[in-house]
């Protein structure tokens, strides 16, 4: 049952990205451009997403276990190390340059914009290299 759950969740996530405007790099870069053509829309995306998730997680964690799995699969790291800081820093630079983070880039792939078609393979290479380095 976890495979259909993931399929439905992926579809809802992708529709959410498109409806919200996150799949439009111009809108993302304008959100980041407070000194210029600022578009605060993405604060509403983050705000609504975090609000719903925060409340829903409280319900989920109160159950003790997930309904269709044996346990919650949560990150175990708790230290704020150099990897976290450098990784997040580099991620932000790439996000600012391209206007894409991983979810929107994938959801926009079938729209076949040239920039997306080169961004996504590069992103997958970068992710695979980091995973190998982290092993």
């Amino acid at each position: 049952m976890n495979i259909p759950v993931h399929a439905v969740a992926g579809l809802i996530f992708g529709i959410g990205l498109i409806v919200s405007g996150m799949a439009n790099p111009a809108k993302v870069k304008n959100f980041l451009d407070i000194a210029g053509t600022w578009d605060p829309s993405l604060a509403f995306v983050m705000g609504a997403a975090v609000l719903v998730t925060f409340l829903g997680y409280r319900v989920a964690f109160r159950q003790g276990v997930p309904l269709l799995a044996e346990r919650f699969n949560l990150p175990t790291k708790s230290d704020i190390d150099r990897r976290l800081l450098i990784g997040a820093g580099l991620f932000g630079i790439g996000w600012g340059l391209g206007g894409y983070c991983p979810g929107p880039a994938l959801a926009a792939l079938p729209l076949l914009a040239q920039g997306t078609l080169v961004f996504v393979p590069a992103m997958l290479v970068g992710l695979a290299v980091a995973r190998r380095a982290a092993r």
């Binding site: 990897r83 450098i86 990784g87 997040a88 820093g89 580099l90 991620f91 932000g92 630079i93 790439g94 996000w95 340059l97 391209g98 206007g99 894409y100 983070c101 991983p102 880039a105 080169v118 961004f119 996504v120 393979p121 590069a122 992103m123 997958l124 290479v125 970068g126 992710l127 695979a128 290299v129 980091a130 995973r131 380095a133 982290a134």
Partner: peptide, 11 residues
């Protein structure tokens, strides 16, 4: 941008 986003998110 793609390399930075992928590598940064992975790291």
């Amino acid at each position: 941008a793609g390399l930075l986003v992928g590598f940064g998110a992975g790291l």
